[in-house]
């Protein structure tokens, strides 16, 4: 592990001024991913700026929008009464991730920008285009049974490991960011870059920008939400398939639906095609399946992850059917 300096930020402006434009600096939140990567030599920062003292740790109702500070711990987020009451899908997703100990430490903001767990990325003795641009992607021909089927490229097939982000995507979350130009907001979906030929570039925001929080629009009355995750062991494992869904059914017809898929792409995959197919149509298992199939038409599975296509399809059907009941 490289020796590094450590600083505690007084306020958001000071934190941003220390990290922005300094490629050797990283923000330290819960550290549950960053510190692991530092031990492995994947991240080698010169400076850690600890932001956990910043006042970004509250969940507040802001005229109907729910604002969640970037430093709200996963456990606190999942247990928050407003989250449980208004967005049960978010609480469910968080509780499906990691372990109790990790959730007590990990933060909302850190969760969104955590790195892939692809085994080639996390082993510095292996090639990896995400870690070492141009070195190649051994996963495409190698061990990829839990890697991407959607939106990947010839350069990288990594998946984003978050559960929380999948729920946020289905809830149309917006992300608050501050950089040297000041604070601004963007849709969560726009936070992640397409993989393309530069998988090392994961985010659209400027280097050194600080995630300050996320906000959620209110859901109309009668909305039902749900999250379901499939993993290889019953607890403490990353998803091999995950679906977050928001559904409004009136008179047997879908009046609104939002679906996000986990474990299939380099970021939470918003199933816009399926949503379009469903909106205004009948809320039946047949329709759900047809929509899922349409979404997954773009899937390009690899040798050992083709099982994810029927798995994800069946999960979409199961979750929507349950919500429509």
């Amino acid at each position: 592990m490289r020796e590094f300096s450590y600083a505690r930020a007084r306020d958001v402006d000071a934190a941003v001024s220390l990290v922005a434009d300094n490629p050797g600096a990283r923000y330290l939140g819960g550290g549950t991913n960053l510190v692991d990567l530092m031990k492995l030599g994947i991240e080698r920062p010169e400076l850690l700026v600890d932001v956990t003292g910043l006042p970004l740790d509250e969940v507040v109702d802001d005229g109907g929008r729910l604002r969640i500070g970037a430093l709200v711990r996963n456990s606190d987020l999942a247990a928050h009464p407003l989250v449980r009451e208004r967005y049960p899908v978010l609480s469910q997703a968080v509780l499906n991730g990691a372990s109790g100990q990790l959730r007590n430490v990990a933060t909302t903001g850190g969760n969104l920008v955590q790195r892939t767990r692809c085994g080639y990325f996390t082993d510095p003795t292996m090639p990896c285009n995400k870690r070492m641009p141009g070195s190649g992607c051994p996963a495409i021909e190698g061990e990829h049974h839990n890697l991407a089927i959607l939106g990947a490229s010839d350069h990288c097939v990594a998946t984003h490991p978050s559960d929380l982000a999948v729920a946020l995507s289905a809830l149309d979350a917006r992300v608050g960011v501050q950089d040297l130009a000041g604070p601004h907001e963007l849709p969560l979906e726009d936070l992640y870059r397409p993989v393309g030929d530069r998988p090392d570039l994961e985010l659209t925001v400027r280097d050194g920008a600080l995630l300050t929080g996320v906000s959620l629009p209110p859901l109309p009355a009668g909305t039902r939400t749900g999250y379901r995750k499939v993993r290889e062991r019953a607890s403490y494992a990353f998803a091999i398939g995950a679906v977050a869904a928001v559904l409004v059914v009136a008179d047997g017809m879908v009046s609104d639906v939002r679906i996000a898929l986990g474990a299939v792409a380099s970021h939470p995959w918003r199933a816009r095609i399926a949503e379009r197919e469903l909106r205004g149509g009948p809320a039946t298992a047949e329709a759900f399946e047809a929509a899922a199939v349409a979404e997954l038409d773009a899937a390009r599975p690899l040798r050992d992850n083709a099982y994810k296509v029927p798995l994800t399809r069946d999960l979409v059907v199961a979750v929507l059917t349950e919500l429509a009941r």
Binding site: R117, G119, T122, M126, P138, G142, R233, S235, Y236, F238
Partner: peptide, 25 residues
Amino acid sequence: SMMDARFGGFVNHNLADYHVATNAD
């Protein structure tokens, strides 16, 4: 334990990726 024969090494060499049963299992 997943061997990538091209490299002669086990890829999932940690307790996150090598799954040992948890209480929930």
